[in-house]
């Protein structure tokens, strides 16, 4: 089975963000990067599925050619090959454009199963998986926390506001992965050595115009100065008073 894990290079979650003075974007020059948290889970699920069913895992990423360090890590963690759809403006690619470009590449790779993270931790859209599946005309289950998969169908569990739903899906399918689905492995020395010999291909992504127009991006407004109302349980009456009479939330 041809299995794809879509991975995105995003700023590390502990990165301090700086803004361009004219509010036209983020200062990206010295940003540290990582593979998006949920995409690591997607990659692990792709490798686990390959180990169970056989086949080949391709790590697919829309990103800069300079992102190959992060993509090499995917090869070290069990992907057999990698394809980077090179775009230096990858972070500004809106969810529709990204979904269309990934769908075009997925079609060419003749895959049956595609894993993605539930959401990328930079633009927080949680949209590319189900959008991409819709463009492909495939089944999709979003936010999976547990799954089983065979050659032509599978079942997956997702957590919703109502409880836990069990969903049956037919292949081909796009599965977006939530925390709890698995524990991503670390790259061992053997994996890192093997990754150097694995194919990493760069391709031009399919054409897809952006529709999102950014007006401004700024830091969140500072919260009003707070105060320590006291120490220990003796401070509780002061807190209750503040919550009732100042904040009026109690």
């Amino acid at each position: 089975m041809n299995i794809i894990a879509c991975v995105k290079r995003v700023p590390t979650t502990d990165a301090e963000v700086r803004f361009k003075a004219d509010a036209s974007g983020l200062e990206t020059d010295s940003l540290p990067y990582m593979i998006s948290f949920y995409d690591e889970i997607a990659l692990e699920q792709a490798v686990l599925t390959k180990e169970a069913l056989g086949g080949e895992v391709t790590a697919l990423s829309l990103g800069p050619a300079s992102g190959s360090k992060e993509i090499r890590e995917c090869l070290a963690k069990g992907a057999d090959k990698a394809v980077i759809l090179t775009d230096d403006e990858w972070m500004s690619s809106d969810c529709r454009a990204t979904a269309k470009r990934l769908a075009a590449a997925i079609g060419e790779l003749d895959a049956q199963l595609v894993f993605m993270g539930r959401v990328a931790t930079d633009r927080d859209n949680a949209a590319v998986g189900p959008m991409c599946a819709t463009y492909l005309g495939w089944a999709c289950v979003s936010g999976v926390i547990e799954m089983e998969c065979g050659e032509d169908k599978g079942t997956a569990k997702v957590e919703t506001e109502n409880g836990i739903e069990t969903v049956e899906f037919s292949l081909p399918a796009v599965i977006t992965c939530n925390k709890g689905l698995n524990t991503p492995r670390y790259a061992g020395l053997k994996g890192i050595m093997a990754a150097k010999k694995k194919p990493l291909e760069e391709q031009a992504p399919a054409e897809a115009d952006g529709q999102a127009v950014l007006s401004t991006v700024i830091a969140p407004p500072a919260r009003p100065e707070g105060r320590i109302v006291g120490t220990g349980a003796e401070a509780i009456p002061a807190l209750i008073d503040a919550l009732r009479n100042e904040a009026q939330v109690l």
């Binding site: 969810c95 949680a126 949209a127 590319v128 979003s142 999102a212």
Partner: peptide
């Protein structure tokens, strides 16, 4: 609303309408 189903369905509907989605 950006609930589990709201988010999932909105992304699919947006693709059917070939339109970008602004989430949450």
């Amino acid at each position: 609303a950006s609930t589990h189903h709201g988010q999932d369905l909105a992304a699919r509907v947006a693709a059917h309408l070939d339109s970008v989605l602004f989430s949450d």
